[in-house]
Amino acid sequence: MRQLFSAILITGLAVTGLAEITQAQGLPGITLLSGPDKTNILNYFLESGRSGEWDRYKLRLPADKLNLAIAEVSITYPDYYKGTIDPDRVQIRVQNKPIPLEEVIWDKENHIIQIYPQEPIPAGTKVEIVMSNVKNPTFGGVFNFNANIRTPGDVPMLRYVGTWILSIDD
C-alpha cells in the first residue's frame, strides 16, 4: 500500500510539473538576469515556439498600459533575431476582432516592424498584435521585442510601452 501511495504521489508531481512547463510558452516566464523592469514585461503566446518552425505570435498590450490613443505600433527586436516576418500577415485585434490597417512595414536592416491602423485605436483599449506566417530563427534563444506607440497628432516620437521576452526553444 505504501509503494502504491508513493507511485501515485510521484506521478502526480510529474504531471503537474509538465503542465507548468507547457504553460510557460504563453507567459513571459521568469527573468533570471537583467532585463526590463518587471512592470514592463508584456504577455504573449507563441503557437509553436520551436526554432526553425513556422509560427504565429500573439503579442498582447494591456489596456492599463495604453492611456493614449494609438496611431502607430512599432516593435523593435534584437539584431541576433534571424526569423522571417510576413508583413502581409500582421493584424491588430481589438476585442478579438481584426481592425483595418493602413500599412505594415518590416524594416529588416533596422530590426523594426511598424504597424499603422487606418483609424487611431482609442486609449484604454486592450490590443493584441497577431503575426502569422513567422519563420522562427534556426537557433533558439531569448529575444526582447520592445513595444512602442505613437499617438495621433503627436510629435513623431515613439513612447515605450513594454517588452515581450520571447523564448524560442531549440
Rank of each mutant, 00 (worst) to 15 (best):
M1S: 00
R2E: 14
Q3K: 13
S6Y: 12
S6I: 14
S6R: 11
I10E: 11
T11Y: 08
G12N: 10
G12W: 10
G12A: 13
A14H: 02
V15R: 03
T16H: 00
T16E: 00
G17K: 05
G17S: 14
L18R: 11
Q23L: 02
Q23Y: 00
G26H: 02
P28I: 01
I30Q: 15
T31H: 07
L32W: 13
L33P: 06
G35H: 04
G35M: 10
P36T: 10
P36H: 05
D37F: 04
K38P: 00
T39K: 06
T39I: 02
Y44W: 03
F45M: 00
F45G: 02
E47F: 00
R50I: 07
G52C: 08
W54G: 01
W54I: 01
W54P: 00
W54R: 04
D55H: 06
D55V: 05
R56Y: 01
K58E: 15
A63Y: 02
L66Q: 05
L68I: 08
A71N: 14
I75H: 11
I75Y: 07
I75M: 12
D79S: 15
Y80N: 14
Y80T: 08
T84H: 14
I85C: 06
D86H: 09
D86V: 05
D86Q: 08
P87W: 12
P87N: 12
I92K: 09
I92N: 08
R93P: 03
R93C: 09
K97I: 12
P98H: 06
P98C: 06
P98M: 05
I99N: 09
I99C: 08
E103Q: 15
I105L: 14
W106C: 02
D107A: 12
K108R: 15
K108C: 03
E109N: 12
H111N: 13
I113Y: 09
Y116K: 14
Y116F: 15
Q118V: 14
I121F: 08
I121G: 07
A123I: 01
G124I: 09
G124P: 11
T125L: 03
K126T: 13
K126R: 15
E128N: 13
M131L: 15
V134H: 04
K135M: 03
K135S: 02
N136P: 07
F139R: 11
V142M: 03
F143P: 02
N146E: 15
I149P: 08
I149L: 06
T151G: 00
P152F: 02
P152R: 06
G153M: 04
V155D: 12
V155I: 11
P156S: 13
M157W: 10
M157F: 15
R159F: 11
V161C: 05
T163Y: 04
T163W: 02
I165H: 05
I165L: 14
I165F: 02
I168C: 00
D169K: 13
D169Y: 12
D169E: 14
D170G: 04
D170F: 06
